[in-house]
Design a protein around this nucleic acid. Structure first.
Lengths: 343, 343
DNA sequence: CTGAAAGCGCTAACAT
DNA sequence: ATGTTAGCGCTTTCAG
């Protein structure tokens, strides 16, 4: 920085133009009346010298940073590796970019907890992507009335945070409706990590749909596990080796489903002839797996978009109704991994 | 912001403690001698009031922002959707986080060209992820001696920019060695977009390896195209329908390869019995496609790490040898999409 | 229409 | 060991 071309300041321009700083400021910001003559003259000097306002100085005065922070749990490397979250990020990045708001990525860690981002006035608002339930920093946020929004619910019931999230319950019901219409009656669920609200909601939807159809819930068919293909593979095989195997396996995400399909195929089961498998998210990979995966689609990009747009409006005070909470529809995409029940 | 708890400043602390601003500053920054007594007293007030230094003000004085910008071509949505680039981003984000440097994502667009980021002193350095050759803003960077680095080469031959990139030539040679040892003699190349240096290097490696093996280069076997599965599917089929089809198809990335495999399978060709297919990048999807894809692995995470680490050192003046240029090794991962040539 | 002065919160000399 | 002063580059009253 120190080495690069010396910064041009308002004062430089003012001196050369023989006017006051304020007049230059007026033409830069297109604010206040300036005679057409001086405006043109000053604009020329600005162009010649390649003047750009120093945003840092501006921010200091305005008390705003024009930046939004995206907080990601450091431990959650998988966010960057997971196509679903990448789509959310893209939605956020593109939306903010349209408003000329900067996006600051912050991997939460001990040294530098995310609360510093706003105490230090580095950001005007925060988007949270993967924060554990009961994060100790969370209460401060609402107390301080700091603009912030989550791309996932952090509690099952009422709480004052703002969030956008998908309709997991309905998604699960759609999946089960589909399987039911294919005569499946014994359906297992490889749900995902138990400590995620979204996983609990999937389970809730699963139970609700079964109950509505008069199918008793068999807890031994519900498994909690990582969102990983390995876990999917192992548990799918375990299920099929049990005395009374299911005819269909619902999965909490597509990675689990793909692992399950692969494991089953290798062990000699045919998908979907012997077992049907349904994924969740509908990531790109779903289309390309063999057979193409039936999956419940979440609109990840939209989720990011809405989070960013809402936060923007909170920052600019367009809306104030805390808590803003929105549920996005999910939709079953039927492909080749589901078929009529073999039994 | 305006609504949130009023900011606590150095002056507030100083007033309460009955000392000067500078003394408070000393204890905050752990710099200069302060009597143990006053230090403790001041620290208490700091803790009680929840004081945090205003980074913006600090940055204004220091002329540094503690932030690095990551510039992404706006048109290149596919960067966010492409698992390969996401890994690069993760490498960057984690490395900067370790140094407590902020990462600012910037989607380049007309309204706000990336050059503003440094003219406005918003960032201390820039990482470029996907910038077209001949970008008009590029020359300014080197002229101004602004710390910056690319995660890809932007010119085939000598130029003064800093970059980290993979060894595409060697990767291609490994792929061809492998195919050659399986008796393939007629190998096509679905290269990728012609305007990318990395694609040109792949072609170069392809030609070099063939030539070294005494196989004449047949230009009609080289295709340029998008990095997309659809393009892969279409061109693979076109190749196989030609009078003298290849026995193997090399692909510029895994998406092309996966599209090719899928298209071929649907048209009744067996991979690898009838045709071998090799991808490039070795994204996660490669392992999960059917058959598992043989692919040339690039270490995306490492690429991001090195870019970030190097930029950090440039910013802190640890290194000055411009241009820093590093080539990362690639490695062929052999899986099930390659086999002995049918002819 | 234009300008002077004050101050955003902090750091860096240079006192004391 | 502590305080004073002068900015960083900009915006914002308030005056001309």
């Amino acid at each position: 920085m120190q080495d690069s071309k010396q910064m041009v300041t308002l004062k430089n321009i003012a001196d050369i133009a023989g006017v006051s700083i304020k007049t230059v400021s007026r033409v830069v910001n297109n604010d206040g009346e300036v005679s057409e003559d001086t405006r043109r003259r000053i604009q020329r000097i600005i162009d010649d010298l390649g003047y750009y306002p120093n945003t840092i100085a501006r921010n200091l005065v305005n008390g705003r940073s024009n930046t939004v922070g995206l907080v990601i749990q450091h431990s959650a490397n998988y966010i960057f590796s997971h196509p679903f979250f990448n789509e959310v990020m893209r939605g956020i990045a593109e939306t903010l970019s349209e408003h000329n708001i900067n996006l600051l990525i912050h991997l939460a860690n001990k040294d530098m907890p995310y609360s510093h981002l706003y105490y230090q006035r580095l950001v005007d608002g925060l988007i949270f992507m993967s924060i554990p339930v009961n994060d100790p920093n969370l209460p401060e946020l609402s107390e301080n009335n700091f603009p912030s929004i989550f791309t996932c619910r952090i509690a099952e019931e009422n709480n004052p945070t703002c969030w956008v999230d998908s309709d997991f319950i309905d998604g699960m019901e759609q999946a089960i409706d589909h399987l039911y219409s294919l005569n499946h009656r014994r359906m297992a669920l490889l749900a995902g990590p138990e400590n995620l609200i979204s996983v609990r909601l999937r389970v809730k939807g699963y139970k609700k749909a079964l109950t509505e159809k008069g199918i008793p819930v068999d807890e031994s068919l519900i498994y909690y596990m990582d969102f990983s293909s390995d876990a999917g593979r192992n548990l799918a095989l375990q299920l099929m080796k049990s005395p009374n195997p299911p005819t269909a396996i619902l999965c909490g995400d597509d990675m689990i489903a793909i692992g399950a399909v692969q494991g089953l195929s290798e062990a000699g089961w045919q998908v979907p002839q012997d077992v049907s498998v349904i994924g969740f998210d509908d990531i790109e990979l779903a289309r390309f797996s063999t057979p193409p995966l039936t999956s419940v689609r979440q609109d990840a990009f939209l989720k990011g978009q809405i989070a960013a747009k809402t936060l923007y409006r909170m920052i600019t005070k367009e809306i104030d109704e805390k808590p803003f909470q929105q549920i996005l529809p999910t939709r079953l995409i039927i492909r080749g991994s589901t078929a009529v029940s073999p039994r």
